[in-house]
Amino acid sequence: MSNAKIPDPDFAQSIIDAGGKTLDLCYQCGTCTASCPSGRTTAFRTRQLIRKAQLGLKDDILPSEDLWMCTTCYSCVERCPRDVDIVDIIILMRNMAVQKGYMAEDHKKVGRSLMKSGHTVPASDKLKQLRVSMGLSENPPTTLGDPAALADFQKIMNKTGFEKLIGGA
């Protein structure tokens, strides 16, 4: 029975409750799969992912690589004849995967950068020099170089439990 896929009857409802209200509307036409640039060159099938979600195949979906193949380009959403919010549903399932601890190390790095600086990319000295040579401020007027603003940014992240979620700073 190692390959048995046991449905979780509450899974589809948990997606709907989290905001994926259109999940049930999918009638499996496959327009999403046909429109998906990720599916062109890989075995990723959007229609299959949505069907699995409807069936409650949580243990199949949450640890899967497939869940992270979507570039959120919305080609499927634009063409879906049932107005299923496919990208939103994929994002909600990604949130559930992260809560279960399924998160790539490179993604944790992005999360840590956000916590540290308020930005997803770091500022290099070379870049700062270029900014100054162009007549821009050394740091952009953001959380960089503004400790009070960064502290507020981090306070919000603490309140939502982000640090714990990505496995600590």
Partner: peptide, 11 residues
Amino acid sequence: PGVIRSFDQAT
């Protein structure tokens, strides 16, 4: 929208 929203929509 791709990374942070995928990790935690509430944050």
